[in-house]
Amino acid sequence: MKRVAVYCGSASPEDPRYLALASDVGRTLAERGIGVVYGGGRLGLMGAVAGGALAAGGEVIGVIPEALVGSEVAHHGCTELRVVSGMHERKRAFTDLSDGFLTIPGGVGTMDELWEAVSWAQLGYHAKPVGLLNAFGFYDHLLAFNRHMIEVGFIRPAHAGIIIAEHELDLLLARMAAHEPHTPIFAMKAHDL
């Protein structure tokens, strides 16, 4: 993986572990020669990821909608800052520019990005690894719900492994690097669906 899209929150939770985690993720990716593609913000976990990667000499490409640039939240210290018209263009750029997706703790926007990456993988719009860093057990309930969707039958067996979840970044990156694409819906016949 030469570049990874990092999905995370723009908020700064009171618990300092979250900002430290985000900074460590950016630094680790940079030290491994993996560029960061992210939401282009300077606040919260977003800013910490970018700051960690930049401090370690890494490439950081921010992709931010015009409306947020006007709100003075853009990180102008990125290697490259791409300004797009809206959220759909932003998420498309994440997919086009990256070789995989790495989700760390975040809120509603982070969930939107994660589930779109999962949905697009399931359909066949991309065949890239979708990693979820379940630091501090943050995503325990989400992973339980994902298992529930699999058990009930809303996620096909062929797609049950799309989300690659780990508690530790090193193990997650190793699993993402070893990712084997699954059979997407676009390649299935009606009897497989």
Rank of each mutant, 00 (worst) to 15 (best):
residue 7 Y to P: 15
residue 7 Y to D: 08
residue 7 Y to E: 12
residue 7 Y to W: 11
residue 8 C to H: 01
residue 9 G to M: 07
residue 11 A to K: 13
residue 11 A to M: 14
residue 13 P to R: 02
residue 14 E to N: 10
residue 14 E to R: 09
residue 14 E to V: 11
residue 15 D to P: 14
residue 16 P to E: 10
residue 16 P to S: 15
residue 16 P to F: 05
residue 17 R to P: 14
residue 18 Y to F: 15
residue 18 Y to I: 03
residue 19 L to P: 03
residue 19 L to N: 00
residue 19 L to W: 00
residue 20 A to D: 15
residue 20 A to S: 15
residue 21 L to S: 12
residue 21 L to Y: 13
residue 22 A to Y: 11
residue 22 A to R: 02
residue 22 A to P: 04
residue 23 S to M: 09
residue 23 S to Q: 15
residue 23 S to G: 15
residue 23 S to H: 14
residue 24 D to I: 03
residue 25 V to A: 01
residue 26 G to C: 10
residue 26 G to K: 04
residue 27 R to L: 12
residue 27 R to A: 15
residue 27 R to K: 15
residue 27 R to Q: 14
residue 28 T to M: 04
residue 28 T to R: 14
residue 28 T to P: 05
residue 29 L to K: 03
residue 29 L to S: 03
residue 30 A to Y: 12
residue 30 A to I: 04
residue 31 E to Q: 15
residue 32 R to C: 11
residue 32 R to K: 15
residue 32 R to Y: 10
residue 33 G to I: 03
residue 33 G to C: 06
residue 33 G to D: 10
residue 34 I to A: 09
residue 34 I to R: 09
residue 35 G to S: 06
residue 36 V to L: 07
residue 36 V to S: 05
residue 36 V to T: 12
residue 36 V to G: 04
residue 37 V to N: 12
residue 39 G to I: 08
residue 39 G to M: 13
residue 40 G to E: 03
residue 40 G to A: 09
residue 40 G to K: 03
residue 41 G to T: 07
residue 42 R to F: 06
residue 42 R to E: 06
residue 43 L to V: 12
residue 44 G to C: 08
residue 44 G to I: 03
residue 44 G to N: 07
residue 44 G to D: 07
residue 45 L to M: 14
residue 45 L to R: 04
residue 45 L to I: 03
residue 45 L to C: 08
residue 47 G to H: 01
residue 48 A to N: 09
residue 49 V to D: 05
residue 50 A to T: 05
residue 50 A to L: 06
residue 50 A to D: 04
residue 51 G to S: 15
residue 52 G to L: 06
residue 52 G to T: 07
residue 52 G to D: 02
residue 52 G to V: 05
residue 52 G to P: 05
residue 53 A to P: 13
residue 53 A to K: 05
residue 54 L to P: 05
residue 54 L to D: 02
residue 54 L to T: 07
residue 55 A to P: 07
residue 55 A to Y: 02
residue 55 A to D: 13
residue 56 A to M: 09
residue 56 A to L: 03
residue 56 A to Y: 11
residue 57 G to Q: 01
residue 57 G to E: 03
residue 58 G to E: 03
residue 58 G to C: 10
residue 59 E to V: 06
residue 59 E to W: 07
residue 59 E to R: 10
residue 59 E to G: 12
residue 60 V to K: 08
residue 60 V to M: 12
residue 61 I to Y: 02
residue 62 G to P: 10
residue 62 G to H: 05
residue 64 I to Q: 00
residue 64 I to S: 00
residue 66 E to I: 00
residue 67 A to N: 02
residue 67 A to K: 02
residue 68 L to H: 01
residue 69 V to G: 01
residue 70 G to H: 10
residue 70 G to Y: 01
residue 70 G to T: 05
residue 70 G to L: 01
residue 71 S to R: 15
residue 73 V to E: 09
residue 73 V to S: 10
residue 73 V to G: 09
residue 73 V to M: 14
residue 74 A to T: 09
residue 74 A to L: 11
residue 74 A to Q: 12
residue 75 H to T: 06
